[in-house]
Design a protein around this nucleic acid. Sequence first.
DNA 1: CGCACTGTTGATGTGCATCAAACAGCGTGG
DNA 2: CCACGCTGTTTGATGCACATCAACAGTGCG
Lengths: 252, 252
Amino acid sequence: MASSLVPETRPLHIHHLKAACSNCSVLELCLPIGLSGPEVERLDTLIVQRFKVKKGTALYRTGDPLLSLYAVRIGSFKTSMLSVDGREQVTGFHIPGEMLGLDAISGDEHACNAFALEDSEVCPIHFAQLEKLAQSLPSLQHNLNRLLSREIVRDHSMLMLMGNMNSDERLAAFLLNLSQRLSIRGYSPRDFVLKMRREEIGSYLGLRLETICRGIAHLRDQGLVEIAGREVKILDMEGLKQLVAGCQRPQH
Amino acid sequence: MASSLVPETRPLHIHHLKAACSNCSVLELCLPIGLSGPEVERLDTLIVQRFKVKKGTALYRTGDPLLSLYAVRIGSFKTSMLSVDGREQVTGFHIPGEMLGLDAISGDEHACNAFALEDSEVCPIHFAQLEKLAQSLPSLQHNLNRLLSREIVRDHSMLMLMGNMNSDERLAAFLLNLSQRLSIRGYSPRDFVLKMRREEIGSYLGLRLETICRGIAHLRDQGLVEIAGREVKILDMEGLKQLVAGCQRPQH
DNA sequence: CGCACTGTTGATGTGCATCAAACAGCGTGG
DNA sequence: CCACGCTGTTTGATGCACATCAACAGTGCG
């Protein structure tokens, strides 16, 4: 996922960075989908200052007031909730083009923590101004509605995974999902790097880190993947898909 | 939840039913929260015809095109997803004042099934028209955003439950959650009726029906509840809360 | 009244958690 | 340079919570 996620055809020159959707490399994956040129320019005005988040630091924490939503531009994040007695539940991993902070809208404060898994960069989108702008840009409003709804669908799939899949199936589903999302971004669906620890994958999938390790060993024994540390190589995409085929929702 | 959910002070005369938010008994719990009188009247125009759904029948099914969102007016529903090999995952239970169909917005078609758990009644809200109206009613748009976001927060809490709680804690959390939602609607948080089967509770909580039965027995043995069939009486609300206190998110 | 559905309880099995130990990678400092 | 500690990963041994299988009781509907 690392720096390899920045398309090489569009090298990053820090001094050229402008906080603008119109020159963003994840333009077609983010809020502006389907907006016209002039419309995107109006959206641009909301983004005061794109900024960096160092690996391991929080973009926001539970209880922080909702100022902005954040589009991941470079890098990756995990979102997590902490229980009273200190257990962490990872609720999602986010790669470039994906939005962070949607769960803060309901209560005007963030309902989870967001940590950078590597040195990353986000576009803050001032929420009050976004709502205002959306009034005059129906397709922007529609995009926001869809974004929120997509998160709900995604969460329901996770509930299905937690309720019905065994550990190997969960791991396979996790790898396939990540592979697909990377693929959309234009990167190899077969070779990628996990930016999170085994423990974080485990929390996300409702398993212990040891179980993740054993799951990896099982998939390797079946010749489906090759995983060394955090380097993933998918050898048999179809085999992986078959493993989870039965326990997933029918493909519309 | 049954018929006891209809306030006795407001008896239901079928021939007086008008499809109107302004005379709806769940007005303050639904989309119109915080809208002014004239604004609610404009929302009213979207609701063509309130209608009934018989127990056990589907309000909509996976793949149905998104025409309307539905506000539950009377009765209760379960939403569920079906896997390829036929396993059901219940993703939610919905009582009056709660909205159905939010997961359909992302793909213009419903992503789950919604079944009536008892004879029920819903207000269909034509979605395309709702989006249109929301353009000129900022507070309506804001309500919709919050509604969507609240569903995301709720789902994240469920993921935490699935990832971190044991069977008794899950059951206690389920009962407390239902109790609170009934309480908001003005009904006793201590005495209510489960409209769903043990198997459906189990699916929702990621457990088997037998485990639900045993969990009920455990809670009863501890003197926390009295459950006979589907009749629930909560004897020790604080005790129940302590049971789940440690494994939940800190209360903002 | 009878039959299908739903709920309860017991006996047994198993998948994953837990506990434990060893190893690899990596930065720090002697 | 290597020794050292720290973090993360892997693998093995054991235990337990929940699933599974099974038998039966209660409920309600045609």
